[in-house]
Design a protein around this nucleic acid. Sequence first.
DNA 1: GTACGTGCAAAGGTTTTGCATTACA
DNA 2: TGTAATGCAAAACCTTTGCACGTAC
Lengths: 139, 139
Amino acid sequence: MEKYKGIGIKLTPQRLGILEYLDGNTDHPSAEEIYSKIKKRFPTMSFSTVYNTLEALRKKGHILELSIDPERKRYDPGTTTHHHFMCVPCKKIVDINIAYDLPIPDEQKNDFEVTSNQVAFYGTCAECKKDTSPPIGSS
Amino acid sequence: MEKYKGIGIKLTPQRLGILEYLDGNTDHPSAEEIYSKIKKRFPTMSFSTVYNTLEALRKKGHILELSIDPERKRYDPGTTTHHHFMCVPCKKIVDINIAYDLPIPDEQKNDFEVTSNQVAFYGTCAECKKDTSPPIGSS
DNA sequence: GTACGTGCAAAGGTTTTGCATTACA
DNA sequence: TGTAATGCAAAACCTTTGCACGTAC
């Protein structure tokens, strides 16, 4: 794939695998999920390569490291402004494509230089609502 | 302290220590920071007690578990609606006290039941801006 | 008195690191 | 060819868990 030539990192087969997997991916995978997936094509690949590549891509601004899931970091190839909803029971994260106006009142700004923002919505998705068992002891 | 009587958890000296430490605290401490602080008054106290207590308080809705710092969970005794700014270099988190209107467009709602949201701003605080060294190799 | 919290140690899961080898540019 | 990435293992780090003992209610 020549399409990744200009992204500013040294390209290896493993990195191409990761890039192709992430390209257009809206699953917000964890490092473990990326590793498992790519390992099928590169059985000798190690975790260090995954983290190394993700860190390189993050530094170049090609992917976002999400702090939405309290359990682990999740990665997002999305480049345009968007936000996220996370289903707490199944940990699925989906994009919310809307640009919010989020002004910080001057008196609270304290000379902070704000470079980015992320809105995280938490709740329950449609499938998990269906699956919900009645509370234990509700008889 | 009798003021914590009605919060719905069994009160022990260690828990009172944690409650008093968190009460009014705007530092958004990590479990480790809470542990270190309280350990000075209760030298035998263990991490399990800290996590146990934090989890009990979270379940009762008395504290928030923040997913803003990618490195570790941070805890917030704040009860009213507010958001956060995190300084990436020094990892300080400060409250942003404003209520944003964050509607999710119907066509993106997919029957999700949203129960909460958190806005995280990232950037650099005034002190860290001062401390910034010129980029390496800029000579 | 009893259910629940405590403290200790050990385990679990995620992420990072050191280093010899390999490969991109 | 030189710099940087890979792979492996081990370590570091944060968080959770099991269990015997102790304590709030």
